[in-house]
Amino acid sequence: MKSQDEIVAARQVDWRELETIVSRAEALHHLDGPSISRAAALYRSLSGDLVLCRARCTPDLVAYLDNLAGRAHSALYGAEPFRIPAFWSLLTRDFPRTLRKNASFFALSSALFLIPCAIGIVLALFVPDAASQILPRSMLDGMADMYSKGFDEGRGEGADSAMAGFYVRNNVGIAFRCFATGIFFGLGSVFYLIYNGLNIGMVTGWVTAAGFGRNIGTFMCGHGPFELTAIVVAGAAGLRMGYSLVITRGRTRLGSLRESAPDIVRLVVGAAVMLLIAAGIEGFWSPSGAPPPVKWTVAALFSLLVTAYFLFAGRERGRAR
């Protein structure tokens, strides 16, 4: 039977070599072939040493080997790389399929967003002072002022790209917050959907009441089909997450949550891509000088595109209903 010192003396060279290889790169596939196969061989013999030492050696040596094994394991099994085909099939197939599978959450999320939005518009239009009771007056006036000019000449170069930047950041934040707060048993998603629906509705109603409804409508119709839908999709993912925590079907809450994670990831990544598209449109197309009828036509096309995508993308041929 070998003593600990003898084991260390015999194996130390190999351990040191593995340590050097592992420290050279974050993942082994960045290294050359011989190093990779050498590292794999060293890792396997290290596994044997670990079993031996756990039975026979002092905790400090076992801790050293545990640590080395962990680092070698991380290096050997590097993180999943980003693959374009996988991402493409997520967009063309998995995301719309998952959304259809979770249609009830999408419907609920839409209702939670659109009904307060409609109420907001009606209140702001027909109830005097309703909007200014709820939202700060200065902000409302600022919005009305912003849309008073229209876009006949396009927005001045850069004059409003600051605004576009602000809204892109703001709206992406809204969408992701609608999703993330779903972890609180879905309540956060419910709150943020209603709150933001009401908010957007009130602002739209206020600007319309001020007489610039045509301008704000023309501006929003371009990116709206992507942006507002993405907020609703993110909300649906949040509701799905909350639902899995409440209705666990005999699993632990955590287990139920983990089981729904693949669906949630697909929905959120899909929403993120839609937000990216919306940001592009909001930055370049919506404030452009194109005549309003052209913008309306394009908006109608966008809406049709999104609807068709949700309904038909990723269906298997012959099984489409």
Partner: peptide, 18 residues
């Protein structure tokens, strides 16, 4: 103990908002 996957990384970092 398996390596992190892209979707999981995205999820854990979005949840920072919560």
């Amino acid at each position: 103990g398996h390596p992190l996957r892209i979707g999981d990384s995205f999820l854990r970092n979005l949840l920072r908002a919560a």
